[in-house]
Design a binder for these strands. Structure first.
Lengths: 212, 212
DNA sequence: CGGGACATGTAACGCGTTACATGATTAA
DNA sequence: TTAATCATGTAACGCGTTACATGTCCCG
């Protein structure tokens, strides 16, 4: 026997803390609610499949970080409402103390450009334009959100509304949104720059039919 | 039977194309070489464990995107040198044509700040300072790399040197590095801003016991 | 004489993704 | 009548990570 220390699995991951945070703010939530919050609030920073959320909630309940209460309904599956426990809150706080792990960008567009010398310029330009369109849209959405957002959740259902008045005062939301906007601006500037470079190489010989 | 269409697994992932790109540029490489290139060049955008690289190379060889030649050595395991094939190059090019998938930041620091209202300000400040230190270092490294880099690979072994003269002319490397620098600058600006916010809440009443 | 570089691998494990399943209600 | 919303789940699968294994050469 060498070490003998059997590594026990980590008990938490970013998605765990995301869910804890959402529960801490918006109180008892169902898996379905959490999925919606992910899609509306965290989509640009952390995705989560519906199936994963349900799985994770079950696991979190087993380790006592959340508790569940069943809300009975007719003609629909019962809502299972999850709340954060004291242990869960303390885990969230502890995580926030720890130094962050090494960050990796993991953006395919960067990889594509890194090996740009192998691609046809027209192909790269196409990818770049698609990327530009997407990020312009994002930027627009962020800006709309940070401004007039009363109508985002038309029913006035505060439970699902990350922009309701009670949260408007939270300076941390604004801070993170501000980063998202600054990031998109930086990224877009670069995309346009990249497109310029690519286009300048696209037609070095405008009407020249014969090549070496 | 409903659909009947059995989904066949994707045949390529970002790591696949990363390896293809590296092979396309730096010609026959061993798994060990590729690991080093990942660590030196792609560490900030795409990590890869050594075991995964070997696994992926085997898979890529099975689908004919790379070919392998054994270089015999005494007193060390033989080097297995991989090269990109015509099929591999065409797969790389095809990938570069396709519009990029939806990008997600996946940075834990952003999550921590998003739920900042639950943490002690001092804890957040600590995390932020650690993050600042790391990103300042990164920025420094990028800048050193883009300037005088002749000595990075002291042996003059061109095979491992991403900064050798023959690649210095590749404008795409410069483009991506430029983004990395701009990103770090934007991120750092935000981190300092966040730190300011957090510190302003750390001691709301310096020597003032009664307020408003 | 211990530690790093060189060089290859195997085994275990889980997060995250994709797909499938069910079924009532409401809106276009 | 078709589709979206509400609301829960299960099953399969693999990338990516962590840990372990082996053995030589070379440097301080």
């Amino acid at each position: 026997m060498k070490g003998g220390a059997v590594m026990e699995p980590r008990e938490a991951y970013p998605i765990t803390y995301s869910i804890l945070g959402l529960l801490a703010i918006w109180g008892p939530l169902s898996g379905y609610d959490i999925k919606r919050l992910f899609d509306h609030m965290l989509s640009s920073m952390w995705g989560a499949a519906q199936s994963q959320i349900y799985k994770e909630l079950r696991r979190m309940r087993e380790i006592g970080w959340v508790e569940m209460e069943r809300e009975e309904q007719e003609s629909r599956p019962d809502r299972k409402l999850y709340s954060i426990t004291a242990e869960g809150l303390s885990a969230l706080r502890k995580w926030q103390t720890q130094p962050p792990e090494v960050f990796q960008l993991r953006d395919e567009m960067l990889l594509k450009m890194l090996f740009g010398s192998f691609a046809r310029s027209a192909d790269l330009a196409q990818s770049l334009r698609a990327s530009i369109a997407e990020h312009e849209t994002r930027l627009l959405v962020y800006r709309q959100n940070t401004q007039a957002i009363a109508g985002a959740f038309p029913r006035g259902d505060k439970r699902y509304n990350p922009y309701s008045d009670e949260n408007a005062e939270d300076p941390y939301f604004g801070l993170v949104t501000h980063f998202a906007v600054e990031f998109e601006k930086t990224y877009l500037r670069w995309l346009y720059e990249a497109l310029e470079l690519v286009e300048s190489r696209e037609k070095p010989a405008p009407s020249d039919m014969g090549e070496s």
